[in-house]
Design a protein around this nucleic acid. Structure first.
Lengths: 100, 100
DNA sequence: CGTTAAGTTCGATACTAGTCGAACTATCGA
DNA sequence: TCGATAGTTCGACTAGTATCGAACTTAACG
């Protein structure tokens, strides 16, 4: 499995993060990830096909919102919460306070 | 002059706000508006044509980020800061802390 | 009025992004 | 090793969006 590209926290771009969060499907993914330690792609699809989910996770990963690590045949995704809170204090809280 | 449509604070949609902020031109507008009481469209174009600016201001208005009021022949735009802070505490701060 | 100035609207174009099926890859288990 | 499973990649289609010139609207001022 190819390793994923995860930008370091000092390369996070606000525009990219906002773009990632401007899609309802991705906003929902982020919110659901906030309640768990990690989740697989399959656990978070809302009936959407796998190729669509893969696309959304890639956007979230490249924005720096989500970290994905392979665990056997499945991928565990987690919110990069502490890094995001350090780099953009208040942003994630604002998102999550909205619709818990 | 046609009155502008300004959504009430309880109709702000996070997706729409994020989309509005995902464009570099609009992010810059918001940041510059944070430093002044109000500004006209012309004061904030970065050499961009008026039709482009008008487009961006409409997106910002309809997301609830900016309020526009006509003052004679020019339009005064201001950040809806208190309403945004009430509805999404921390969000605007996160944006503005980033690049003052 | 006629003019100037500030923005808006319209229309065309180009680019960007979301959706989803099909084929591919990698890993685990029988 | 064969098959099943989880996810990625590819390709095509579609929908949305940015850009910008040109025409239009509105208001202030001679």
């Amino acid at each position: 499995m190819r390793p994923f590209k995860h930008p370091p926290a000092d390369e996070f771009a606000l525009e990219r993060i906002f773009h990632a969060l401007s899609d309802p499907a991705r906003l929902e993914i982020v919110r659901r990830l906030a309640h768990v330690e990690a989740a697989t792609c399959g656990e978070l699809d809302g009936g959407r096909p796998k190729s669509s989910m893969s696309h959304h996770f890639r956007i979230l990963r490249e924005a720096g919102l989500v970290h994905t690590r392979g665990a056997g045949t499945l991928h565990q995704n987690s919110l990069r919460r502490t890094e995001l809170d350090t780099r953009f204090p208040g942003l994630l809280d604002a998102v999550l306070r909205q619709a818990p």
